[in-house]
Amino acid sequence: MGILVENISKKYQNTTAIQDISFEVNKGELFGLIGPDGAGKTTIFRIVTTLLIPNSGKVTVAGLDVVQQYKQIRNIVGYMPGKFSLYQDLTVEENLQFFATIFGTTISENYHLIKDIYTQIEPYKARRAGALSGGMKQKLALCCALIHKPKVLFLDEPTTGVDPVSRKEFWEMLKRLKQFGITILVSTPYMDEASLCDRIALIQKGKILKIDTPQRLIQNFSKIIWNIKSSNKYLLLEDLKAFEHKHSVFAFGDSMHFIAKTDLVSKKEIENYLKTKNHSDIEVNKIEPTIEDIFMDLS
């Protein structure tokens, strides 16, 4: 039993944060909530971690109801909030000790779970948490969330504000945690991290757009994506928006990703169109879609 979310909605005064959200996370699965800031990811986390009561819908975590059985849930889940929330004025070791004790366990009892991660920050164990670098803080927070051997782990944007190398390391650690059978729900605004999850839910404006494995999402995406470059980036975007065959276009790094209304539009046609608009150094290539392309297409 992992996590089961059925038709939950939450309103804050007049704004609807999430609407009719449903998804299921299997035991031992690494499930990602992918969406931009303000999509409602944190609201979902606060509901599944028993901190917030939904206006409607039902959520069970490891078979326990989040409203009725929240006390039991708090014993078996680990939560890492989006904001770094350990005691900055306690040392690395003291923080870990604190979380072990309040869960009624000891560091040594579950050391095997955190060993891989903790050895990286162990040289700084006498240092105050506030003096750690961003990546180190995340590792410590993960250790603290794991120290009581949770059945389910909730990670709300764990890699936001962390450098690319630390981000990569962090995801590798998550993969290793799966071997212990821990169910992990993780959220991220970074589309490139989506492919590292077993399954993902794309969410925007409080609604789920699609749920599937990243691979299948890409496979099932039938539209052709054109990667287009030219010397004048700004005009290129404007001109492609005005193109009669346009379905969607958005900037992706230093090029444009263009989807035509039909797949019948050829490379030649696009090039000719851009030439009439006086573009030079035109490059048009077919590319494999990424999660970001799918997200942009859906939203």
Binding site: T49, K71, R74, V77, M80, S85, C144
Partner: peptide, 13 residues
């Protein structure tokens, strides 16, 4: 303010 309360709340304390 520093967010630790949220973390503490998701514990059996």
């Amino acid at each position: 303010e520093i967010g630790t309360l949220e973390q503490i709340n998701v514990t059996p304390i």
